[in-house]
Design a protein around this nucleic acid. Structure first.
Lengths: 245, 245
DNA sequence: TCAAAAGTGTTCAGCGTACACCCATGC
DNA sequence: GCATGGGTGTACGCTGAACACTTTTGA
């Protein structure tokens, strides 16, 4: 190591310390695309935007990240505050940082998506209707760059649905194969063949046949299954498991 | 809309304005995993870390994001400052935000990876040897959470190599199929069958046979090809193109 | 003529895909 | 008994994987 080298090091440390306390800091927010599934449609939880110039539009659910929390923790906190639900599946998608994206100044936003069974959930401040489930197909212009964020999160959801067992978190613990197929069809926007779909998902060996049937239906009752998370965790550590259909 | 509703809106705006100017701000950095390919190995550009308690370790190349630039712009600036190269391929991977990740306080870092042909590039401050190409296989403990960042970026590189024509940005404009195959083998860590590899990549219809040969090799000279970026841009808008092998 | 690396086709198994009829229940 | 949706097996084509010999050049 040369003297030059040492000098560089000291300069670098000092530079960083002063930078960290200057206006190099930015406001950082988390925006969540909260997908809600009701066995008919895929919905997104939106809120009325109250910030000019986006008044009258809807926006995703977001908040600034606090100094004591990670991004994942901020995402979970936002979800719990808005929906009362914890232990939801969330996943980071990517950061958005266009300079003009927020009217109040520089805000870098990290996008997450989350998955909710709508049945399990009652909107907290439903009295004033600021929060709404909106079917994905009916979402038009959102505030800020939230259409971009939504697109990226939806694309990631579709990719992940084929890779990981996330569909099961949108269904009751006991579900029929028809329910599962419909979920895949609605999220992916495809029609699937019943026999091929069943063969593929059952070939994972992770669907537990509960030997129970639906009741109170006016047709042949469907068999009920549950997903074997336990076995999935074991298997995935030493083999790759796909949920592609 | 009720009066309650209006009141909420005003409060929200005010909250945001004050939050944006408070300590809700965080230092935001970009860390780049700069992959350099020399037709023998995959290397990563590392720098000696000069920050306690990580003195003596190496770290990825990074810097704080400035208030007037997007994250992509910050990534490109860092690359240009360190390597003198512009117009490189970069891609965002994800944000890292663990509370203890940086010794000087809260720093949220957005990870990028970049691709460089090592031939094209001479390390700028090579006199003091702070910057070094290190073969991926020889990288051990890095500073901060940079091993995690490296792992995630390498995983993304491997995924993308199968999806997009990024391998060609690591080879000369005119390349042989053997060079291309070796690149895939080294990056993916696999051995590939020569005939199957050729068939698959040539079936994209995007390799231009230049009707030229290698010269000055002491064996049968290989044919030279180039990649048809023009055609790729056209095709990909209306069909999905894979570079899986 | 030898060494070194380039180039080239075919076979087979497994997977994805397409497809039509019978079954169990409530009314 | 009929309407409603649930459940099941097979045939075919395509794609991925395995595999060995000939060709061209420089030394």
């Amino acid at each position: 190591m040369t003297t030059d080298n040492k000098k560089n090091k000291v300069e670098n440390i000092n530079t960083w310390i002063s930078d960290l306390n200057s206006d190099a800091k930015a406001a950082v927010s988390v925006d969540c695309v909260i997908f809600g599934y009701d066995e008919k449609e895929l919905n997104v939880l939106l809120i009325d935007c109250n910030m000019p110039p986006h008044l009258g539009k809807k926006s995703l659910i977001g908040d600034l990240v606090k100094s004591h929390e990670t991004l994942d923790e901020a995402g979970l906190r936002i979800l719990e505050q808005r929906t009362g639900l914890s232990d939801l599946y969330i996943e980071q998608v990517r950061a958005f940082s266009e300079l003009g994206r927020h009217p109040l100044g520089r805000v870098i936003s990290i996008a997450y998506y989350a998955l909710i069974k709508i049945k399990n959930y009652e909107i907290k401040d439903s009295e004033n209707k600021q929060l709404q489930w909106v079917p994905l197909s009916k979402i038009s212009e959102l505030a800020f760059d939230h259409n971009k964020i939504l697109n990226d999160c939806y694309a990631q959801l579709k990719r992940r649905l084929r890779e990981r067992p996330i569909g099961f978190s949108l269904l009751p613990k006991k579900f029929t194969l028809i329910q599962l197929q419909k979920l895949y069809e609605i999220i992916l926007g495809l029609e699937l063949d019943k026999r091929n779909f069943r063969r593929k998902l059952q070939s994972t060996g992770l669907l537990i046949d509960l030997n129970e049937n639906q009741t109170d239906v006016s047709h042949r009752p469907a068999k009920l299954f549950s997903f074997d998370y336990e076995e999935y965790r074991k298997k995935k550590t030493f083999q790759s498991i796909s949920f592609d259909i």
